[in-house]
Write a protein that binds this DNA or RNA. Sequence first.
DNA 1: TCGCCAATCTTTACGTTGTCTAGATAGGCT
DNA 2: AGCCTATCTAGACAACGTAAAGATTGGCGA
Lengths: 199, 199
Amino acid sequence: MKATPYHHGALRDALLTAAETILRRDGLLALTLRAAAREAGVSHAAPGYHFGDLPGLLTELAAMGLRRLSAQLRDIKSSPERRVWDAARAYLAFARANPALFQLMFQSDRLQMESPSLLEARTEAMQQLALTRGIEDASPTLAQLGYVTGGWAIVHGFAMLLLDGRLTPLLAGMPPGSTPEDLFEAMLASAEKGLIGYS
Amino acid sequence: MKATPYHHGALRDALLTAAETILRRDGLLALTLRAAAREAGVSHAAPGYHFGDLPGLLTELAAMGLRRLSAQLRDIKSSPERRVWDAARAYLAFARANPALFQLMFQSDRLQMESPSLLEARTEAMQQLALTRGIEDASPTLAQLGYVTGGWAIVHGFAMLLLDGRLTPLLAGMPPGSTPEDLFEAMLASAEKGLIGYS
DNA sequence: TCGCCAATCTTTACGTTGTCTAGATAGGCT
DNA sequence: AGCCTATCTAGACAACGTAAAGATTGGCGA
């Protein structure tokens, strides 16, 4: 048994965790095929064998993130009327806990959109979303579609704006010690009453 | 007068328009310093002189996009009660007309966040946003902050999800011939009534 | 009008990356 | 025991960002 055996044995998984380590520590721009290989302690071309190319690796990472998000949404055990709120909070919590991964999950120009594993993870997350909103119809009405879309868009938009640092000026106008979650709750309360024409 | 004079004369602006051409034609990943130089017909290191590095060029592009968006929001001449709707539509229209540029504008890891021109363009756009929502207070209340954030987030989130292709399954469930704008209108109508607890 | 200066652009060079190719290794099946 | 195939390494090449040094020229002062 050598220090570094020629065959790793579980290199594919090791590369995925190495890639996520880099993603969390150094950001998306630092996540390269060669960096993942260095982090895993293998040759620079090893990731190419398992993932084909860089979009292939990023796609598997994104699919992994989507599956984790779906699981966290599925594990919500609230009552139906509280479930929507808790799902929104879980969505934001995931984005805050995995900022770079979350942004990668919604950066389609770096992903292989036709990848089966990504497509499967996407539809799974989509079903969780519709289920949370209490819509199981095969052919929903236009109002239902607008309702589902609105709930997703407002939560997703908040997460995106927050991760991009665009809400910092707004957060600066809040009482000292306020967290982004406080602004999030205020936004949800506003959305419950009606978001337009309120002032 | 030679075919290609040594000094371009207005190379900085030419590089910016060349960069936007590439952005629109080939996407963000194809926009490199050398590609912009090729498009403008100058040496590959010329952009480095005017913009320092690649984030410098992208930052100027993003600032340009923000200024254009601000101008389009400012040009809205609707009545106060219709202004919110028209601003939302203008926001989406800008994102649809300039997809790659819009995504670049909200991709802070590729931009120089401390750039004065970017900061100025940002605060200008921010003021247009607050003005559209009818809030001019120096110290807004928490409810007002939640209200402004919600309006921004739902429109921004819709644009992001749409540009990322995430709404295509939802659009597939709509009547044939429906446009993304139709779903957008349905979402706004839903947001007006109240976005949570409707079902 | 002459000459110099500084802004502008080119050339050259180096390290890093993605990706392709050929080769090395070894686990497992017959 | 031997081979087959999956797995990993080594090497190479083009494209990229970026730095340094050189070339060009418009314009300003004497």
